[in-house]
């Protein structure tokens, strides 16, 4: 099996725009939150275009609401396609969740019941989205804090069935697996071992807040040791996979995040040695 591995990326955040442009850090690509750049113009968008000249970009959305019972938002899809035409991202991703209904947006990634009804509903909508965009998308597993009584299968069975039916790919968030495992009491390795490696195109790594009884996916901390351990096991299972750190709050200096990214590089090196084929290593001037 060959897989495109784009190396090690970071979530591009406002605090780092200038640093990235001025210092050209050792990062293979940046991931942007799609909706932040669905604006007419201005400084952030200009920064994105500047950074795009030097780095490949992944586009990561939070508003597709693929699981919602509302009709697909065609205006949103048109804007998504327009931005993708501008940015030419390596991947477009969003989350396996719903974010609202009745035209009200919770601005949160709300869990779906793991039911046949939801599988069919989501798969059908992914097919429509992919047809519209003319490309495959990645769906990310979200962290969750509750299970509906309607659920008929595990989360890993749910996501596996959907991606097979819709023929899309997976952005596997390793931290989210850990967070959900703690909150629901399952073994995270059961999750990882059940996912088809051919479907996994990207990893997210992030920090969380541990409250003892439960864990919240806050993205405002360094990556915790158990998540690093799980990342190593995921590399063994899925092979070398594009990996990035997603920090959304309590944002440290860019150098600190790159140091954290170097930990991921070190783990990858430990697993694969130097035998990693980077599909599209960034050209350096």
């Amino acid at each position: 099996m060959t897989k495109k591995n784009y190396g090690f990326g970071l979530g591009l955040r406002t605090d780092h725009f200038v640093d990235v442009i001025e210092t050209q850090p050792n990062v293979d690509w940046f991931e942007v939150v799609t909706e932040n750049f669905m604006v007419a113009g201005g400084k952030p968008k200009n920064f994105l275009h500047q950074i795009r000249r030097d780095y490949p970009i992944f586009m990561h959305g939070v508003s597709l609401s693929i699981g919602s019972v509302d009709p697909l938002d065609t205006a949103y899809l048109s804007e998504l396609k327009k931005l993708a035409d501008e940015v030419e991202p390596l991947w477009i991703s969003d989350h396996l969740c719903f974010t609202g209904m009745g035209k009200i947006n919770s601005h949160d990634l709300l869990p779906l019941p793991y039911s046949e009804e939801a599988i069919n509903h989501v798969a059908d909508r992914i097919i429509q989205v992919q047809d519209f965009l003319g490309r495959q998308i990645l769906l990310e597993n979200v962290s969750s804090y509750l299970t509906y009584t309607d659920s008929q299968c595990s989360e890993w069975e749910f996501i596996s069935e959907i991606v097979k039916k819709a023929d899309c790919h997976i952005l596997l968030d390793i931290n989210n697996i850990y967070v959900s495992a703690r909150n629901h009491g399952f073994d995270p390795l059961d999750y990882i071992n059940a996912i088809d490696p051919a479907r996994v195109k990207q990893f997210h790594l992030a920090g969380h807040s541990d409250y003892g009884d439960y864990v919240i996916d806050t993205h405002d901390q360094d990556i915790a040791d158990p998540v690093w351990d799980l990342y190593e096991k995921a590399l063994v299972r899925f092979g070398a996979t594009s990996t990035m750190i997603e920090r959304d709050d309590n944002i440290p200096p860019l150098g600190d995040l790159i140091a954290e990214l170097d930990i991921a590089r070190g783990i990858s090196h430990r697993v694969f040695g130097n035998d990693i084929d980077l599909t599209q290593r960034r050209a350096r001037g």
């Binding site: 699981g67 919602s68 719903f98 009745g102 009200i104 709300l110 939801a118 509750l146 299970t147």
Partner: peptide
């Protein structure tokens, strides 16, 4: 079912309406 569950979840988030509680699994200590 999907419609009803999403509606209940949104009603809980926006207005604190508790009907969703009957459809959440009791798991562990939380």
């Amino acid at each position: 079912t999907l419609f009803e569950r999403q509606q209940q979840m949104m009603n809980y988030l926006l207005q604190g309406k508790p009907t969703i509680k009957d459809h959440i699994v009791q798991q562990g200590a939380i």
